[in-house]
């Protein structure tokens, strides 16, 4: 009897361990597979961003007189914008960087536009710490009221259908403020057209860059966005006004579900655990150092993670140095 009990306990222990190992490895592989798919989607869509620039009379220069243009200038009504999310998004749960741009993806909810493949959409990507209520039917939310939500860092995608893309409503020449120009990705717009792409992405780093000219220091490629900020409609920076960055380095850091569960257990519901120091990823020249610090911090905390990084060439960038 005793021997039988020992064998039973041993068998149960082996079964439990095997099950745990299987679940952990399955979650790990599927988690990172989803993160890779999301990463490829960002890269693909970002490479299609456009400003559709054109040349127009310039009435703003010193040589222009009343009604007589002083020359030509490159113009566009579209917008490419990237910065630290905390600097411009009202969403306090958004962390690291965010990017918003226009691309001709042809996405619409109006069936009569369906065959128009070149329709313009507003797109954006950012990381948000949020619960799992997005996309849940109302009756399930009501049923689970009072139960603990699953809070996770999530990579979010904003995609406004072409009929709700308000980018053409702003007119900087007409004296519109920066807030008005950014209204196409206002908090209301984002709330209406955002969706989670993948869970457990803790950082998104967007670094617009120039291609490096041989013989020049690597830092020269970073001069268009030394602080990770790029606004194609910022009139005070003529270098980047109405022009797309030729290259954008995208970095995405993902942790696995087991690490996320551990993190959730160690923090208060709803308050994001501080995984990325606010001092990191402020200056593009410190990118390697900051990434190493983040990696080291995650390793020290025992959080299994993976870093995806690539540099995307934007096809419609018409950059001349």
């Amino acid at each position: 009897m005793v021997i039988l009990s020992i064998i039973m306990v041993a068998a149960a222990t082996i079964l439990k361990t095997t099950q745990e190992v299987w679940t952990t490895s399955w979650e790990r592989t599927s988690q990172f597979r989803d993160a890779r798919l999301a990463f490829e989607q960002i890269s693909r869509n970002l490479s299609q961003s456009t400003l559709n620039t054109y040349w127009d009379y310039d009435y703003s220069g010193s040589q222009s007189k009343a009604g007589v243009p002083g020359g030509y200038r490159r113009d566009s009504e579209l917008h490419f914008f990237t910065d630290a999310a905390s600097r411009f998004m009202e969403n306090r749960k958004a962390v690291t960087h965010a990017v918003f741009f226009q691309a001709t993806l042809g996405y619409t909810r109006d069936e009569s536009y369906e065959r128009l493949d070149g329709l313009l959409n507003g797109l954006g990507y950012f990381v948000e710490y949020a619960d799992n209520e997005y996309g849940k039917p109302k009756f399930l939310i009501a049923r689970e009221k009072g139960k603990k939500s699953r809070w996770r860092f999530r990579l979010m995608e904003f995609q406004s259908p072409t009929e709700f893309n308000t980018v053409y409503e702003a007119d900087e020449a007409g004296g519109d403020s920066a807030a008005k120009i950014r209204e196409w990705f206002s908090a209301e717009q984002i709330a209406a057209y955002k969706r989670p792409l993948v869970n457990n992405v803790i950082a998104l780093i967007i670094s617009p860059q120039l291609s490096r000219v041989p013989g020049t220091p690597s830092s020269s490629a970073l001069r268009i966005a030394p602080l990770y900020r790029y606004d194609s409609r910022n009139a005070s920076n003529p270098d980047t006004l109405n022009v797309l960055p030729p290259l954008v380095k995208i970095t995405l850091v993902a942790i696995d579900e087991a690490a996320a569960i551990r993190l959730e257990a160690s923090t208060n519901q709803g308050s994001p655990p501080r995984l990325v120091s606010p001092q990191w990823f402020k200056e593009a020249k410190n990118y390697e150092k900051d990434l190493k610090a983040l990696e080291q911090s995650l390793t020290e905390r025992g959080l299994n993670h993976r870093i995806f990084s690539t540099t995307v060439a934007i096809r419609s960038a018409k950059w001349s140095t």
Binding site: G106, Y107, R109, E111, E114, G135, K136, P137, K138, A192
Partner: peptide, 18 residues
């Protein structure tokens, strides 16, 4: 639709389609 999306509009009740 051929792009994988659907012809379902935004649910007027603010609920999901299920």
């Amino acid at each position: 639709h051929p792009d994988g999306s659907t012809n379902l509009p935004v649910n007027p009740n603010g609920d999901t389609w299920h």
